[in-house]
Amino acid sequence: MINDLSAETIYNALNEVMDPEIPVVSLVEMGIIRHVAVKDSAVTVTMTPTFSGCPALIEMQTLIRDKVRELGADNVHVETAIAPPWSSDWITDEGRRKLKQFGLAPPQAHGGNVVMTFFDPVACPRCDGTDTTLKNSFGSTLCRAIWYCNSCQDAFEQFKSL
């Protein structure tokens, strides 16, 4: 069975593995899965963590390993690469759509210069209005910031630009 297993099949299967902290978006859509290689029946999946202190890292490695084993591979390595560092620009359009649906405003695109986003308003995921105020750069997880929508008069969370 392993002989039929292509990197593409594995990659597509990993699109079913959800981010433990945002269970509607997959690790592929988050841009966390960087590379899949199959060589002599050994599978190597390379992932890049979002934040260096991410507590879900080991959980993600386990989920990836279990998923690839489900496909029939026994020899599975999950490698962590920190270079280049993960960028929120790597989240796919589909991933951004799902984040918003989940109630998390997607990160602003920054092209490598995050400081530029510090001056942009973030659209409210409920009403799309941009009359919003940053309340806290830090939120309920390392990757979230807390905003307030002046139109809805309610708080919302954003996935931080990184």
Binding site: I82, F138, G139
Partner: peptide
């Protein structure tokens, strides 16, 4: 409360840096 959250986040980032 917001600063409680912020300091916990910052502490966690710093531990992440130490681990790296």
């Amino acid at each position: 409360l917001e600063e409680d959250i912020a300091l916990a986040n910052i502490a966690q980032d710093e531990l992440g840096h130490a681990v790296l």
